[in-house]
């Protein structure tokens, strides 16, 4: 997984190399290093390091090792890359609990509904809606689409999925 660390270093040669010794201990692999000179105070400068690390446990070990060694850690954490998925729903959506149930279900699966747009051309005519949710991984996305599909079936709605 990808993670980021923001740590305060003294702006003197060899400081970064010392900090990176911890990376070797937890099998982390540096992707990029950025000195944030705009936030420099005295001879201390924040450094942001993006790196790959095997899992959350290794990330926790890294944080403990850094703090035990006396490094000032400003932030450390997994970089979450959310993918945004939009599905279409056609049918008599309003007046049923279909949409409410969809949001609850998507939420339970760890995804997050972030947008909803609807067109209602006239009374008794089917509505057309877009439902957008954010998801951390493919499994979560597939489960969410599958559950939305089941609810569409239950309420007699047409679900339009993305092609892949």
């Amino acid at each position: 997984m990808k993670a980021s660390l923001k740590v305060i270093l003294r702006d003197t040669p060899g400081q970064l190399r010392k900090a990176l010794e911890v990376f070797e201990n937890v099998n982390a692999n540096v992707i990029s290093v950025m000195h944030v000179h705009g936030e420099k105070v005295g001879d201390e400068v924040p450094v942001e390091i993006i790196f790959g690390i095997p899992d959350r446990e290794a990330l926790q070990r890294m944080e403990i090792l850094l703090r035990e060694s006396g490094w000032k850690v400003l932030s450390i954490g997994k970089i979450v890359q959310l993918s945004r998925i939009t599905v279409g729903i056609i049918g008599h959506i309003i007046g049923t609990k279909s949409f409410e149930e969809m949001i609850t279900k998507v939420d339970e699966l760890g995804a997050n509904v972030c947008d909803f747009s609807i067109r209602m051309p006239a009374k008794n005519i089917e509505s057309s809606a877009l439902l957008t949710f954010e998801s951390e991984n493919n499994e979560c996305t597939e489960n969410a689409i599958s559950e939305i599909g089941k609810l569409c079936e239950k309420y007699g709605l047409l679900l339009i999925k993305p092609v892949s």
Partner: peptide, 27 residues
Amino acid sequence: RTGITHVTPEILELAAQRNYRIKLICS
């Protein structure tokens, strides 16, 4: 199998606003 008989102009327009087209896709 699901056909296209329930596809509406409104959903085509909403999809276009998000840079999508709607096609009957065989996969």
